[in-house]
């Protein structure tokens, strides 16, 4: 399924996009985690590629990234994993990384490989809409969309640009701050949702700070989709075995899948 088909099919509910980082718990078992999450009710995925200096990520995803890099994960290998996930699950995948590994591979080469991997979208955490034109152009050529971000601080003028360029969805930053599990309120997400919706029909997916079924349910009421990352990554880092990691993520995704349907 494509992202577009996924949003269209879920007419009366928000979709659930779990995040997982390539290389966890070990590179050979990352696919198992994604398959377990697909079986537990995920609608699509954010496939994380580790970066050594992840400015948008809190301590848990930082630690996961260092572990994955130390074990030899790279952008090229992560795209191979993405291809395997897309093929095994049939679900839409968004490749998530930072700008420098993409520049090192080359924007065009990266775009071609993402397209070949069967990923429908790319998310680059430190690439604001202002700097995105060359990336959008190259990715379009490969039939891949570039997700744009909207934050509670985003001005109206910036938001107009973000919704105009976002493809296949807007990543709404639900809470101020880097990725992590928090018990914050959703008042700012509600305001952000209203501002995006008043401008555009482009799907809005909320992420950052959404850690469990309760916050996922609230976010689902405000948006077309929900991303959960840190809570899943933490469970993988804490699991003693590969089997236990698969069980732990499946358990949380099952609960989250129920929550976004409530």
């Amino acid at each position: 399924m494509t992202f577009g088909e996924t949003f269209t099919a879920a007419t009366d509910r928000a979709v659930l996009f779990p995040y997982m980082m390539c290389g966890l718990p070990v590179a050979a078992a990352t696919l198992d985690l994604f398959v377990a999450m697909a079986d537990a009710g995920a609608d699509g995925f954010e496939v994380g590629i580790p970066y050594a200096d992840p400015l948008m990520d809190g301590p848990v995803i930082q630690e996961a990234g260092m572990k994955a890099l130390a074990a030899g994960m790279t952008l090229a290998k992560g795209l191979e994993t993405t291809a395997a996930v897309a093929s095994a699950t049939g679900l839409p995948c968004a490749v998530m990384t930072y700008v420098n590994p993409v520049l090192a591979m080359g924007i065009t080469e990266f775009s071609v490989r993402v397209g070949e991997a069967g990923a429908g979208a790319v998310i680059i955490a430190d690439l604001p809409v202002d700097e995105s034109a060359p990336f959008v152009a190259a990715l379009e050529g490969a039939g891949v969309g570039l997700v744009q971000f909207a934050a509670p601080t985003t001005t109206d003028a910036r938001l107009d640009q973000v919704v105009a360029k976002a493809n296949p969805f807007v990543y709404g930053i639900a809470e101020m701050g880097v990725t992590g599990e928090r018990d914050g309120s959703t008042s700012r997400a509600a305001e952000l949702s209203r501002r995006v919706r008043s401008r555009s029909e482009v799907p809005l997916v909320l992420g950052v700070g959404i850690s469990g079924p309760e916050s996922a349910k609230e976010a689902a009421g405000l948006a077309d989709g929900v991303i959960v990352g840190t809570a899943l990554v933490r469970r993988v880092l804490e699991a003693p075995t590969i089997g236990a990691a698969c069980e732990a993520v499946a358990e949380l995704v099952t609960d989250l899948a129920v929550a976004v349907r409530e």
């Binding site: 700008v99 430190d126 604001p128 809409v129 744009q148 971000f149 909207a150 509670p152």
Partner: peptide, 19 residues
């Protein structure tokens, strides 16, 4: 765009861009 020739720019998370 904040460039000195080919260098510089603003590769920052959207949350910071308005600031």
């Amino acid at each position: 765009s904040g460039r000195f020739g080919e260098f510089g720019g603003r590769f920052a998370p959207e949350t910071l861009m308005p600031a």
